[in-house]
Amino acid sequence: MTDEAVHGQETDGGRWRVHVHDDDVHSYPGVAYVLHEVCGLPRERGLALADAVSRNGGAPVAVCDTAAEAERAAGEIQLLGLRATVTGPE
């Protein structure tokens, strides 16, 4: 899993993206914690992504090479209470 999407870089059509969606329950620090635990992102980057999720209703948080890897990451995020989905190659 890479964090290309979270750094705003374009990815090729063969990559899978994990998106986190906004809700009215989780705080910015809570989202940052989940992204640190699952994606290995630093707290500051997690807080910035939490802000993007809140402002935009969702944000890509990881880019994976395979569907299985993306589904695993989305599942781990969901187990920690956030809504996450996977989008396939475009």
Score class of each variant (00 low, 15 high):
Ser54Pro: 10
His26Gly: 01
Thr2Val: 04
Leu49Ile: 09
Gly88Arg: 11
Asp3Gln: 12
Arg83Tyr: 06
Arg17Glu: 00
Ala59Asp: 07
Leu47Ile: 11
Leu47Phe: 05
Val61Asp: 02
Ala67Trp: 11
Asp12Thr: 13
Val25Trp: 04
Pro42Asp: 14
Val31Ile: 08
Val53Phe: 03
Thr87Asn: 08
Glu76Ile: 02
Asn56Pro: 07
Gly30Pro: 07
Pro42Trp: 15
Cys64Tyr: 05
Leu79Pro: 04
Glu71Ser: 07
Asp65Glu: 13
Arg15Tyr: 05
Thr85Val: 14
Val61Trp: 02
Leu35Lys: 06
Trp16Gly: 07
Ile77Pro: 02
Ala32Met: 01
Pro42Cys: 08
Glu4Ser: 09
Gly75Cys: 06
His19Asp: 10
Glu76Ser: 08
Ser54Ile: 07
Arg17Cys: 06
Pro29Gln: 05
Glu37Pro: 06
Ala62Phe: 04
Val34Pro: 04
Val20Pro: 00
Leu80Asn: 07
His7Ser: 13
Val6Leu: 11
Ala32Leu: 03
His7Lys: 15
Gly46Arg: 06
Thr87Lys: 07
Gly88Phe: 03
Asp65Gly: 09
Val38His: 02
Arg55Phe: 13
Asp23Arg: 04
Ser54Trp: 07
Ala74Val: 04
Leu41His: 07
Val34Ile: 05
Arg15Cys: 13
Leu82Ile: 10
Gly58Cys: 10
Pro89Ser: 13
Gly14Val: 12
Arg43Ser: 12
Glu4His: 12
Ala62Gln: 03
Gln78Met: 14
Pro60His: 06
Gly88Gln: 05
Ala84Gly: 08
Asp22Tyr: 02
Arg83Phe: 04
Asp24His: 00
Pro89Gln: 14
Pro42Asn: 13
Thr66Leu: 02
Arg72Tyr: 02
Ser27Cys: 02
Arg17Leu: 05
Leu35Asn: 05
Asp65Tyr: 05
Asp3Val: 15
Gly57Asp: 05
Gly13His: 12
Gly88Met: 01
Arg17Ile: 12
Arg55Asn: 15
Met1Tyr: 02
Ser27Ile: 00
Ala67Arg: 10
Gly40Ser: 08
Ala5Ser: 14
Gly30Val: 07
Leu82Asp: 04
Ala67Lys: 06
Glu10Leu: 12
Glu69Ile: 11
Glu44Met: 02
Val18Asp: 01
Ile77Asn: 02
Val6Gly: 09
Leu47Val: 09
Gly75Ser: 12
Asp22Asn: 13
Arg55Cys: 08
His19Lys: 00
Val6Asn: 08
Ala50Arg: 04
Arg83Asp: 14
Val61Met: 06
Tyr33Ser: 15
Ser27Pro: 01
Val53Thr: 12
Pro29Thr: 01
Gly81Pro: 07
Tyr28Pro: 10
Gly57Phe: 03
His7Tyr: 15
Leu80His: 09
Leu35Gly: 01
Glu37Gln: 09
Arg43Pro: 11
Pro29Lys: 06
His36Asp: 15
Gly40Cys: 12
Tyr33Asn: 13
Arg83Leu: 09
Ala73His: 12
Val63Gln: 03
Ala59Trp: 00
Glu71Ile: 10
Gln9Tyr: 15
His19Cys: 03
Ser54Lys: 10
Asp65Cys: 11
Val61Phe: 03
